[in-house]
Design a protein around this nucleic acid. Structure first.
Lengths: 234, 234
DNA sequence: GCTTGGTAAATCGTATACAATTTGAGTCTC
DNA sequence: GAGACTCAAATTGTATACGATTTACCAAGC
């Protein structure tokens, strides 16, 4: 839990760079910040009431996660993964997450199950009330929670990064703008977890990731700003 | 290539934070900087002739890689992986590198082979002239080069991090202080690469990593500073 | 002797000032 | 009008000053 308190209990808690990075990261995960958007240092600092020093720390941290691209003397932008990078992200997830799901299944406690269940319900609620961005973020968090339960901090860090970047990929390459009909997959995973069935969990996760990729449109040259060239080539 | 020129061609090239991080990282890889060592900001800045601003950027970057631990108001220290973290690093490598070796084998060009060969020779030369730290670094670079050849930037980044942290693990938990008798393993891998034999490459890499782990001493409580508690529990 | 307390030095955290670079508008020319 | 040029405004990069925290040392007390 630990909600990285923006303005929590203790009256005048000044925001740290971690807070800023978390807030910005959430915004990216919820598609309130979209790939390519400029993150002006003064502007961000003004919004959160901190100096540029702190903002720069946050932006550089996000740069390391691959969420933000920093161009020298030009500033920070929400990253725009290329098609190759998009493929890589999901290939890496396919390499890490199935085994992680298996490990998680074997370590799963009743408390974990309850928590994951709550997570799925929240996701449902978000979808029902039209908060697609929030639903998307929660859907990613589900994967991160599984990694956390697997109790492998190193791989958890990698998965967290990959899930993060998946938000960008989805923003750029998702086919159907409407539903994220994947809650079924998460339910199925939860069943495997309840039965402590590592094999199923591994297979379900593998299938789930393949399913996700199959809903992306990763053909070359679709989202590149080729307006000029496209107009001329006709 | 691009050797991140410390003082390259252009006369007065002021060191960037990337340069500083690279220099410090090399020092860690070569065991000139050992786990636990304090990295004083003023001191580092003095050595490289840059202000603390730049040093702090470098140290935070290394923090993200897991090479450095930053404690608030206390400063940056070369990281000291616990035994659990040490295990995790090699488990993650075992998950990523065999498949990466396979992919590399399939994409390997004659130029790549030549380069890897040179790498092995350099490693030999370093060992022969007693530069164990350099040999260790080169040995790690070998793995990173394979990742690069596999042409999967995302996984390459992960492997780079893991190899980096492996240097720390080796500094803390390596059994025999003398030789790193692993050049044989690298030779065998090279043979597989020359034959474009992905299966062999994958298997050899898996075995090589297991071999490495087996030379570590990862039993509990050997390097922990428990003098007080240990004395009291008796 | 060992601990406790207090003060000065060392060190880190952050804001800010200023330099360097990019951006964009406006002007001029062809 | 399209393109090249100039200059001001906006923005980022870096050094530095200053406050906050930790550390280290030394003296006093039990």
């Amino acid at each position: 839990m630990k909600d990285s308190g923006s303005q929590s209990s203790n009256s005048k808690s000044v925001a740290t760079s971690e807070d800023i990075a978390a807030r910005l990261t959430d915004a990216v995960h919820e598609h309130r910040l979209l790939p390519g958007m400029k993150l002006n240092e003064d502007e961000v600092g003004e919004i959160f009431g901190v100096s540029r020093t702190i903002v720069r720390q946050a932006l550089r941290a996000m740069g390391h996660e691959g969420l933000v691209t920093i161009e020298r003397n030009r500033g920070a932008f929400v990253a725009k993964p290329t098609i190759k990078e998009a493929r890589e992200v999901f290939e890496a997830r396919a390499l890490l997450e199935p085994q992680t799901a298996r490990a998680a299944a074997e370590r799963m406690t009743p408390a974990d199950i309850t928590m994951l269940n709550q997570h799925i319900e929240d996701e449902h609620a978000a979808l029902a009330s039209g908060k697609y961005g929030l639903a998307l973020k929660l859907s990613g968090d589900f994967h991160v929670e599984i990694a956390r339960i697997s109790d492998h901090a190193t791989i958890e860090t990698f998965i967290r990064q990959l899930v993060s970047r998946s938000s960008l990929v989805i923003a750029l390459y998702w086919r159907r703008r409407n539903a994220l009909c994947e809650s079924h997959a998460h339910h199925a995973l939860l069943d495997a977890f309840e039965n402590k069935d590592g094999n199923s969990a591994e297979e379900l996760m593998k299938g789930h990731l393949l399913d996700l990729v199959s809903q992306l449109d990763l053909r070359e040259a679709q989202n590149t700003n080729v307006s000029l060239k496209a107009a001329l080539s006709q």
